[in-house]
Amino acid sequence: MILINLLPHREAARKRRKEAFQATMFASFLIGLAIAGAVYWWFQMMITAQQERNAFLQSEIKVLEEQIKEIATIEDEIAALRARQKAVEDLQSDRNLPVHLLNELVRQIPEGAYVTSIKQTEQVIAMQGVAQSNERVSEMLRNLTDNTPWLSKPELVEIVASNIALSSRDQRRVSTFNLRFRLMRTGEAQKAKDSASATIGK
């Protein structure tokens, strides 16, 4: 027996293809939505993790800043203590400076010159006196420059010719001088002595 299909098979095939296409599109949409959701979730997890790391770093930075402030405070205290320690050491080492000053003046002031006043301001000594002549003042300046490690940088501020009365009949012409120089600290004087010894040794 021969069977003949009189139904519209093309329309039925077209309908099946359309339904299959729609099902495929719907499935693709669901898969795409799932992938997009997974990607979004992954990015959110990454953002959350990074925010947590940032928050942790911020808290650690605050802790470090506090520690740095404490260290800076400690360093200031150490610097203040060192400054006080140096001041005490300077005072202790400089307590004999007046003795060295007077001793060196006795050695370095030549005959024919004498001192009328001495004034000390920190390490600078201002000295006034009288000399028989300008040559005596020059000799004294050379002595203060070359012959002592305790006195340095002598500077003649003023020299004036004047007369002094030795008696009612006898007057003498003299040079009144005003000079200043620097009194070296004990450590500086020791360095100058060592440098001079090394130079002589060579």
Rank of each mutant, 00 (worst) to 15 (best):
V99Y: 12
Q128P: 07
V115T: 01
E122V: 08
A126D: 05
G112P: 11
V157K: 03
I159P: 09
P154Q: 05
S133N: 12
T148K: 02
L141E: 02
I118Q: 00
N163D: 14
T116V: 11
L105K: 02
Q123I: 03
R107T: 04
V115K: 00
D170R: 07
R169S: 11
R173Y: 12
E104P: 00
I109G: 05
P149S: 00
P110N: 09
L102R: 10
T148G: 01
Y114R: 13
L97K: 07
I159E: 14
T145C: 06
E111Y: 14
M140K: 05
L141M: 15
P149R: 02
V137K: 03
A113S: 15
A161H: 13
G112M: 12
R142Q: 13
M127T: 07
R169N: 03
A131L: 13
T121V: 13
N147W: 05
L97E: 04
R172G: 08
R136E: 14
N134R: 14
L151C: 02
G129A: 07
S168K: 13
V157T: 05
S138R: 10
S117G: 08
P149W: 00
A126E: 02
V160S: 11
M140A: 10
S138M: 14
V115I: 14
L105E: 00
L105V: 01
V137Q: 05
Q171C: 07
Q132L: 15
V130W: 09
E111D: 10
R173D: 14
T148A: 04
L166M: 10
A165F: 13
L102N: 10
L166H: 02
